[in-house]
């Protein structure tokens, strides 16, 4: 994967490189260079399959990380492109014309993280949530528990136990 990284470095201003396994690596690069890099990887390097497009919320740094994971089936190796975006008013160029499946991922990201992909087809339609009226639920500043307690009627009397200590108590009482 290092050879691939060197070839990429010659073409694009790529950043941090992480090699997870001998056939899986991640590269950070600026959002403006994402599209040429994807095209290069798809058409020249044989990474023809978009495995997934997902996001990570780095709330402490005030950034979203988009991960485009590509796969080269012939050589059985994967590469992930990381794009860091500001958390406020996140907008990203759509890649649905490179891989049609990306439109679905982008629709989901807009709904769950609020990341906007203006040109993606159907991106403003509801994907999984229907009638959602709060901030996107996968953002880390969304308090799931608080929302659940506010929105849904709860049945009183629910208690939570630590499985390990509870089972110890049940199976071996009096042994600490």
């Amino acid at each position: 994967m290092h050879a691939l990284y060197d070839r990429l470095k010659a073409l694009f201003p790529v950043g941090e490189f992480t090699e997870q396994r001998s056939n899986l690596a991640f590269v950070t690069l600026p959002g403006a260079y994402l599209r040429p890099a994807l095209l290069h990887l798809r058409d020249r390097e044989g990474f023809t399959h978009l495995v997934l497009l997902t996001a990570v919320d780095w709330i402490e740094q005030g950034q979203f990380q988009l991960t485009y994971l590509l796969s080269n089936r012939a050589e059985n190796r994967d590469i992930g492109l990381r794009v860091m975006l500001p958390r406020l008013g996140t907008v990203m160029a759509s890649i649905h014309d490179l891989w049609p499946t990306a439109a679905t991922y982008q629709r989901e990201l807009r709904e769950m993280f609020g990341i906007d992909f203006p040109d993606s087809p159907g991106v403003y339609e509801e994907f999984i949530l229907e009638g959602w009226n709060d901030i996107p639920p996968y953002r880390r500043d969304f308090d799931t528990l608080q929302y659940a307690q506010d929105s849904y009627a709860q049945r009183p009397g629910r208690e939570t136990r630590d499985p390990e200590s509870h089972m110890k108590q049940q199976l071996y009482p009096g042994k600490g």
């Binding site: 639920p137 799931t144 929105s151 849904y152 009627a153 709860q154 049945r155």
Partner: peptide, 10 residues
């Protein structure tokens, strides 16, 4: 799913 944001509890 006791703390889930989109499932009913009761």
């Amino acid at each position: 799913y006791w703390d889930s944001y989109n499932t009913i509890k009761c």
